[in-house]
Simulated assay, not measured.
Amino acid sequence: MKQLIKKIREDEKLQEVISYLFFGGMTTVVNFIVFFLARSLFGWSLVVSNTLSWIFSVLFAFATNKKWVFKSKTRS
């Protein structure tokens, strides 16, 4: 098990794949939560709730992929 963890830490591409899968899953969670809140809590229509959840999911995915998955250093 220690060897596997050591291999993961040393292999940048493997770290990137694991990070990408993790934050992809988190993007799905963000989508579900925003949709649920918009639909159930605020009572907005399906179209508005889905559109809002999609926008938040894309923004979350962009930010997390840029900063933590691909480790981009640019500010723009």
Rank of each mutant, 00 (worst) to 15 (best):
K2V: 08
K2E: 15
K2A: 05
K2M: 06
K6P: 14
K6R: 12
K6Y: 12
K6H: 12
R9D: 11
E10A: 07
D11R: 00
L14F: 08
L14S: 04
L14Q: 04
Q15E: 14
Q15F: 03
E16I: 08
V17F: 12
Y20N: 11
Y20I: 07
G24N: 13
T28L: 11
V29G: 03
N31W: 06
F32W: 01
F32N: 06
V34Q: 03
V34L: 08
F35K: 08
F35M: 12
F36K: 04
A38K: 08
A38C: 15
R39D: 14
S40H: 10
G43P: 06
G43E: 10
W44I: 10
W44Q: 13
W44M: 14
V47A: 12
S49D: 15
S49Y: 11
N50Q: 13
T51W: 04
T51C: 05
W54Y: 05
W54M: 09
W54E: 08
W54T: 12
W54F: 13
I55M: 10
F56N: 08
F56W: 06
F56P: 01
F56Q: 09
S57W: 02
S57T: 14
V58T: 01
V58I: 15
L59P: 00
F60P: 02
A61Q: 07
A61Y: 07
F62W: 02
T64K: 03
N65D: 05
K66E: 03
K67I: 00
W68H: 06
W68M: 09
S72N: 13
K73G: 05
T74I: 03
T74H: 00
